[in-house]
């Protein structure tokens, strides 16, 4: 598996798209910090970008890579290698190279602007951790979709739809539910619904770290009580991990049975 991972990783690190992705974050980081020298302000803006773009790019990149390397995969399948290691190797290759682009692309400008001397370092760390989790989650989901759909167009369609659902539609349904049931106590529901979507969970985790969390008022206090405890932190990290583990498990299960 590590050999395949290595090949995938090297293959991607030579690919133009990884560089584009890396340069995009580099440019974004520098521009933001140039326009507004305040690190914690930049973290907020960065959050908006991360919770939307990282899942989108993870999804598209994952699907694209799978379909692109299909011939190579079929060649590998002819060799005496476990199927599990082929697909997981490819998956981790993609996810790790995307995560590396993200960490380096954002890390370099922030470090250059004196991150280590500022108090925003933990905000930034949580930003990167959630970014990396989102990369792993959405790449895994993309591989799942690609494995289940031979038709490229269909695969792409589903992948985009999945992103659209988790990034936008889910919140719409969430909001409608909140408005519809406003007569009832909704704190627990809001908490559970937030935990159910990795994008929402990441957003809240970052928001609670920032000053702006005071705006959340009473509901925010309930959230802070929950996420502020070690139990809440473990639970939310566990939830994010679960979002990685379940799709990864399905990749290996699906790959085992699939006809090529």
């Amino acid at each position: 598996m590590f050999k395949i991972l290595k090949y995938s990783f090297y293959d991607l690190s030579r690919s133009r798209w990884s560089y584009v992705y890396f340069l995009f974050y580099l440019l974004l980081g520098f521009t933001l910090l140039f326009l507004n020298n305040d690190l914690s302000g930049a973290v907020i803006t960065m959050m908006n970008v991360i919770i939307v773009l990282v899942p989108l790019i993870g999804t598209i990149f994952g699907v694209m890579y799978y379909y692109d390397s299909k011939e190579f995969t079929e060649l590998l399948l002819a060799q005496p290698i476990k199927r599990k290691s082929i697909f997981l190797g490819q998956y981790f290759g993609v996810a790790i190279s995307l995560a590396a682009s993200l960490i380096l692309g954002l890390g370099i400008p922030f470090v250059a602007y004196g991150l280590f001397q500022s108090g925003a370092i933990w905000d930034f760390v949580i930003l990167l951790v959630t970014g990396v989790f989102l990369t792993f989650i959405f790449t895994a989901l993309a591989f799942n979709i690609a494995l289940s759909n031979e038709n490229k167009i269909k695969g792409f369609g589903f992948a985009i739809l999945l992103w659209l659902f988790l990034a936008v539609i889910y919140d719409g349904i969430f909001l409608m539910a909140l408005v519809h049931f406003q007569e009832y106590p909704l704190d627990k529901f809001a908490l559970i619904a937030t935990m159910g979507n990795p994008i929402d969970l990441s957003r809240i985790l970052i928001l609670l770290k920032l000053d702006i969390s005071a705006l959340l008022g009473y509901t925010g206090a309930v959230f802070k009580n929950f996420f502020g405890t070690s139990m809440g932190t473990i639970l939310s990290l566990g939830m994010l991990s679960l979002w990685v583990i379940l799709p990864v498990w399905r990749i290996s299960a699906k790959a085992k049975k699939k006809d090529f």
Binding site: N48, D171, L186, L215, G220
Partner: peptide, 12 residues
């Protein structure tokens, strides 16, 4: 609906 504030800064 004060609870809706949890969606602050969501794309939707």
């Amino acid at each position: 609906t004060p609870e809706a504030i949890v969606l602050l800064r969501s794309l939707f």
